[in-house]
Amino acid sequence: MASHQQSHDRTRYVRDRQWLEYAVHELPAGVLWGVDGATPEQCAEMLDGLDEFAGVCDRLGLAGHAEFIDGCRWHFDHYPHFLGRRRHFVDYVTYIRDRRGPVRVPPPPRPDWLGRR
């Protein structure tokens, strides 16, 4: 039986995983905030949320999330730079490739307790 903290962390994990996957699902077109492209300020908020997600993953003992977290972090760090200097770049995919970033961010493995799709 899951403890109250573990139950809370699982709920946070599901919620945060959903918005993180959504934020990067249109790559390499850009990072999303809702239905619109993210602003630099929103990217900073997403970095904070990503740190919280990483902590939840650690508390839950989830392996295999590092690539997803690192990929999200790369885009949340770099997308504001791209936005501020967009006129200097052909498009975001070129920006990503020039900086050897991940063009796509694959979702992390699903925990057993989350069930299968």
Rank of each mutant, 00 (worst) to 15 (best):
S7T: 14
G34S: 05
V35S: 15
A38W: 05
D9I: 10
V31C: 05
H8Y: 11
Q18T: 12
P28I: 10
G34Y: 03
V31T: 00
H25Q: 13
R12G: 01
A23K: 04
E21Q: 13
R17W: 07
W19M: 12
W19Q: 11
V31I: 05
Q5F: 08
T39Q: 13
R17A: 05
D16G: 04
P40T: 09
V31S: 05
R10E: 13
G37T: 08
R12I: 09
Y13L: 09
W19F: 15
H8C: 03
Y22A: 12
L32K: 09
V31R: 07
D36H: 13
G30C: 09
V31G: 02
A38Y: 05
H25N: 11
W19H: 10
L32A: 07
V24L: 03
Y13D: 00
L32V: 00
Y22D: 09
L32T: 00
A38L: 11
E26W: 06
V14G: 11
A38F: 06
G30K: 00
R12L: 15
L32D: 04
W33F: 15
A29F: 09
Y13C: 03
Q6D: 11
L20Y: 01
T11R: 13
G37F: 13
V35P: 06
R15G: 02
Q18V: 05
H25T: 08
Q5W: 10
A38T: 05
A38V: 02
A23F: 06
H25A: 08
Q18Y: 12
D9P: 01
Q6I: 12
A23Q: 08
W33S: 14
P40M: 08
A23D: 11
D36S: 08
A23C: 13
L20V: 01
R10F: 02
E21S: 11
P28S: 12
L20K: 02
Q6M: 10
L27D: 02
Y22P: 02
H25C: 14
R15H: 10
L27C: 03
E26Q: 12
T39W: 09
H8W: 11
D16R: 15
S7G: 07
T11M: 10
H25V: 01
A29N: 12
G37S: 12
D9Q: 02
Y13S: 00
D16Q: 14
R12H: 11
V31M: 02
L27R: 04
E21H: 12
D16N: 12
P40G: 10
V14K: 14
V24H: 01
V14W: 04
P28V: 11
E26P: 00
E21T: 09
Q6A: 11
G34L: 03
L27E: 01
R17F: 03
R10P: 01
R10K: 15
H25M: 10
R17C: 09
R15T: 10
H8D: 06
T11Y: 03
D9T: 04
G37H: 14
Y13Q: 05
H8R: 13
G37R: 15
R12A: 09
V35H: 13
Q18E: 14
S7K: 13
Q18K: 14
